[in-house]
């Protein structure tokens, strides 16, 4: 411990020295690590999409994930009209990069074809959870009315409570659920309300009710008229199916 004279000048000198050393250390580390983080984030995002498309499992290698991702057909659609936007690369288009809570006009969707026939379509969805913005991918079967998978890509819900929306057991309840009834009304929801038939309903998570309801709310919002409704109709027509 320093017990000698402490002039203001020397105090400043030591403070500046330590500050310079620390900032140099932090800057170098961040400079070296940011590209690694960005690359990882990109692969993780592709992994979520590929998993929703039913191609690779969650622990597949990075190379498998990227090649599976490229085997999907990515296209950017305009939500208002449901039409495909020409000349934009769907594989790299990122409508989440800007942030914010408003629905962007153009969104990438990912189609999985097998021998020319549509098998699955993966739709990005997002919205407010209890605390944070939840980003997820909803995959639909070729009938565009049956849930094939639901994958949470990222969220900032309370650790140990709200983060159970990522619980595989809960997510395994999703496949097979239907969105619209015979009359074409969107009645799918995440709730414990027994008046909604079980095939249109995913139960909430005990102890994480708020976060799981929020997931239901954002999925409903994205499937409605302001979301993918027009795009799905247009897609069905393009693929030569009667929705």
């Amino acid at each position: 411990m320093n017990t000698g004279e402490e002039s203001a000048g020397r105090t400043m000198l030591v403070a500046v020295g330590v500050a310079l050393f620390c900032s140099a250390m932090v800057t170098v580390a961040v400079h070296l690590l940011r590209p690694v983080q960005a690359a990882y984030a990109a692969v993780e995002r592709n992994r979520a999409i590929v998993e929703a498309a039913g191609l690779a499992s969650a622990d597949a290698s990075d190379d498998t994930v990227v090649s599976d991702f490229l085997s999907l057909d990515a296209e950017v659609i305009e939500l208002g009209t449901g039409a495909v936007v020409e000349g934009v690369d769907g594989y790299s288009f990122d409508h989440w990069a800007a942030g914010g809570d408003t629905v962007p006009p153009e969104v990438p969707i990912y189609l999985r074809h097998e021998s020319g026939r549509l098998v699955r379509v993966v739709l990005p969805v997002d919205g407010r959870g209890m605390w944070s913005t939840i980003h997820a991918y909803l995959a639909l079967e070729a009938d565009l009315n049956t849930v094939a998978a639901f994958v949470v890509y990222e969220h900032g819900e309370t650790p140990g409570i709200g983060d159970r929306i990522q619980n595989p057991q809960w997510l395994s309840l999703w496949p097979g659920k239907r969105l619209r009834n015979a009359g074409g009304d969107l009645i799918f929801d995440v709730s414990d309300d027994p008046s909604v038939p079980a095939e249109y309903r995913v139960d909430t998570i005990t102890g994480a009710t708020v976060s799981s309801r929020a997931v239901g709310r954002l999925v409903r919002a994205w499937l409605g008229e302001d979301g993918y409704a027009r795009a799905l109709t247009a897609l069905a027509r393009r693929e030569g199916m009667t929705p």
Binding site: N2, E6, R10, V14, A15, V26, L33
Partner: peptide, 25 residues
């Protein structure tokens, strides 16, 4: 060399910088 008057804050700065490096890693 650590001056007593700002010893704590300098220590905290050093620790915080190390934590940032660990966090980013």
């Amino acid at each position: 060399v650590l001056p007593n008057s700002i010893r704590l804050i300098l220590e905290v700065t050093l620790i915080a910088s190390a934590v940032i490096v660990v966090d980013e890693t």
